[in-house]
Each structure stands twice: as C-alpha cells, then as structure tokens.
Design a protein around this nucleic acid. Structure first.
Lengths: 237, 237
DNA sequence: TAAAGATTCGAACGAACGTTCGCTAACCTA
DNA sequence: TAGGTTAGCGAACGTTCGTTCGAATCTTTA
C-alpha cells in the first residue's frame, strides 16, 4: 500500500494564482518542480522559516523575524506563500514525506523482520540529525496546525505510525513473541524523537552509531523472553 | 546531597508587596503557605493557567484566554502575579519540585539498584499521568523561559537528570555492566516523557501498569548481556 | 461603624501581530 | 524597445497582545 492510499492533499497553488511559464520544469520526484527561480527562492524562504520556527517556536516567531532572517521585506515574503500557517504546513509536510519516502525505499532491501526495524530506526535518526531544525519543528509543533492542513499532517503521522507498528508485529509473529505493539511503537518513538531535546554533535555519536545502540537496546527489550523479576509488591498495604 | 545544594531561587514576592496578615500560616511543606485566601486563590489561578497553557501553548495562550478560564477580569488576575512569565515559572517549578521531592522519599525505601530504577520510572509516570496538563507544560515549554527564571528551571532539570544518571550508574556498577549512562538516561527520558503525546486513559494502562511494562522493557535493554546480532554491514559500498 | 487593607474591575496604554495595498523596479518575450 | 508579467518594497490596515491605572467594592479589624 502506498503512502497515501486516499489522497486528501490540499492544493498548494501559488499565492498570486499565476500560471507556470516556460519549459514544463524538470521534476525532482513526482511532486514539485524545483528548478524555477520561484521554487528555488521559496525553498530558501522555507529554510529560513524552519530555522526561526525552530528557535522561537511557531507562535513565538513573528513574520518580522522571518523577513529579517530571509533578508526580504515583510510584504515581499508574501509573494511566495499565502500565510504563516502555510509555511508551517509546507515545512512539516515536506519533512514527513521525505522521511517516509526514504524509509520505503530502504525497506525494500530486506525481508528480515529484525533488520527492517533497524532500518526504521536508522532512517529516522539519519534524517532527524541531518535535518534537526525541520524535525524539531515537525515534532514540537505537533498539534499546532488546525483544520484541513492539520488533518493532513496528522494523516501522514498515522501512516508513519502504522508502518512502524507493522514492522513490530511482523517481528512478533516471526519470533513468536508477546508484547504490546502500541506500547512498543510509542516507546520507540519516544526514544528516537526525544533526541531533538538533547543531541549535541560535539558530544554525542552520529546517527549510524546511535541507531546501532538504540537498535540493540530496543530489540533487547522487545526480543528477550527472560523477563526481569517483577517488582516485589508490598504485601503489607 | 539535597535537591538544590546551591540555592539560586528567585524571590517570589507578592506582586503588590504587601505583608502577610493574621496567623503565620500553616505550611504544607517547607516552602509555601497554602492556607491564606490569597494563596488558595492563586493556586486556582495557576490551575486554570496550566490548562490553558496545555491547550494552546505558552505563546499561543493570551492573558484574555486566562482571564476567561479563571472567571476573573484581566486586571484582576494581576493581583496574584506580576507577569505571564511568572505564571509559567511557578507552574514548572512546582511540578518539578514536587516530582523530585516524592522521588527522594520513595528512593529511601530500598538500596537495590534495579528496584530503585523501577521506583524512578513509577514515580515519574504516576506524577505525570496524575498531573498530565502540568507535565505537558513542563515538557513542552522546556526552553520557553529565559534569563534567571529559565536558568533556575534548567538547574532543577539537571538535578533530576543527575539523579537518574546516578541510579543507572549504581546499577551498572552493581551488575558489572557496560553501557553509556548518558544514552540510557536520555532514552529512558524519551520513553517516559513522550507519553504526553499519546496517553489516553480510555485506551492505555494506568501509571503502575505502564511503569511495570516500561521498567521490564528498559531493564531488559540495559541488563541483558547477550547483544542482539549486529547489523550486517553492506560490504559492497 | 469607621478606618485600613485586600480584592476586583472597566478602560485604556503603547507595542507588536499577520496581512494587504499600491506602487516601482526588474525581467522576459515579441 | 515596447508591453506584460514577476519580484519586491514602504506604509499602513485592523486586531490583539501584555500590562497598568485609578476608582470601586468587598473584608477584616479596632
């Protein structure tokens, strides 16, 4: 099943509604042309917006902060998008789509259920650490967007969750284990998303090494049948 | 070592600088009188503020939202505190202090290093789920406060981190294990803090059961000497 | 019951917010 | 080089922000 079996994507038209001109544009993937001047400029604006949203949070960042960072006037910015909300939407959607896209490519390389979970972790951490600011914006401004845009981002998130859950359930079946898939997914997400609050490239390992360690750690927790001794409940009370 | 070996706490005076009146007030712990009309009212205001900050985020919540929720006029609110920042500060500080206070009481009950880690997890999850809104505000508005107030909250956070790290290093010594304490602490924090993004009391287990499961899971990951097989690196490129 | 203090409020402050309006360059094509 | 589109800007729009002021109303104590 492809990423978005039901495509509810909002149209993201140019804010001034102008038509494309010139050559039909080379397309990077199936989605967006990246070779026009307009698109390259918009891309830069999104990068600056990502940085500011990351530093100050979406609500805390003003369009004037943005215009300063982008080296463009406040009014000039609005040539490239319709609203502040659309900026956040595009940042989040792009990050999420890219991470899922790469994941699905990598997952094709093996059918081993344990290895596929390692791939999931490594893909997540690699993209996360290579795009730290965007991933903080994605993670931190989780339920900032409302209405249609928010619904679309949440749908992508559910899809990502579902992929991870299926990987874990495959493992469970393959190895005949017993554990709560939901709890395992959410524990794993906690571990690998929390990284945006602490990772320091001067102190901490890189994505590959972290993925190895966290993968060992996580899989040991899930795989090993020998349960650590239960907590001895106080019998007197 | 006590919680704050170096006490850098800011004075939190009444905004209007008035003196206490009447009886010197029964004190709940060593910190704050809770029996005066003023303090009880302030406490209610903080509860409402917690709810609004939780729903809309600190920056996204306006003082007018607050006044509506508290059923008090905008100006009337300012009788109880000096600024919006102080509200966030008091909410975060109270939550953090309480959770550490309770933890240290519970840790006295045993010297077993594994059991003490279970106590840490259970204490965290119990307080977290019983005070979900405050804990979301504490977790989500992590680096919202700046200057002196921010520094104080960050100091308490470091203290909490340090306690957890020591518990883990005790375990490591006691069992002769090898693992990165930093990575283990931060993985654990990720797992137990991330809960604010997903826990649904109608679907998910309660704090005690979750603490049991997460404790099993975490300790299995840390304890077990049998490393899962390493990822088979691609030799061809 | 009068004075003193605690509490609450309507109204307003200046500043900052996201967004829009015209207007001018710059650019591309004919 | 003329004409239409694209890109960009200064200035302002109306709204909302956190906060403050002075007066009014409660509560407590003498």
């Amino acid at each position: 099943m492809a990423l978005a079996s039901v495509d509810t994507r909002l149209p993201v038209a140019r804010p001034d509604g102008r038509k494309e001109r010139g050559a039909p544009a080379l397309r990077k993937n199936g989605n967006e042309p990246l070779d026009t001047r307009f698109d390259r400029r918009l891309s830069k604006v999104l990068d600056h917006a990502t940085q500011i949203f990351c530093e100050k949070g979406y609500e805390g960042a003003s369009m004037r902060d943005l215009s300063r960072a982008a080296g463009m006037s406040l009014a000039g910015l609005y040539h490239y998008f319709a609203s502040k909300e659309e900026l956040l939407y595009r940042i989040q959607k792009h990050a999420f789509q890219t991470i899922i896209e790469r994941l699905q490519q990598r997952l094709d390389s093996t059918t081993d259920s344990e290895e596929r979970i390692r791939i999931f972790i490594e893909n997540h951490l690699e993209y996360f650490l290579a795009n730290k600011q965007a991933m903080k914006v994605l993670t931190h401004e989780d339920d900032t967007l409302k209405d249609a845009r928010g619904a679309e981002i949440r749908a992508i998130k559910r899809e990502y969750y579902r992929i991870c859950l299926e990987l874990l359930e495959d493992l469970r079946r393959a190895k005949g284990l017993q554990f709560s898939g939901r709890l395992a997914v959410l524990s794993l997400f906690g571990t690998i998303n929390w990284i945006y609050t602490w990772h320091n490239p001067r102190v901490d390992a890189d994505a590959k090494a972290l993925a190895q360690e966290m993968g060992d750690f996580f899989l040991r927790g899930v795989l090993n049948p020998s349960k650590p001794r239960r907590k001895n409940g106080k019998t007197s009370g």
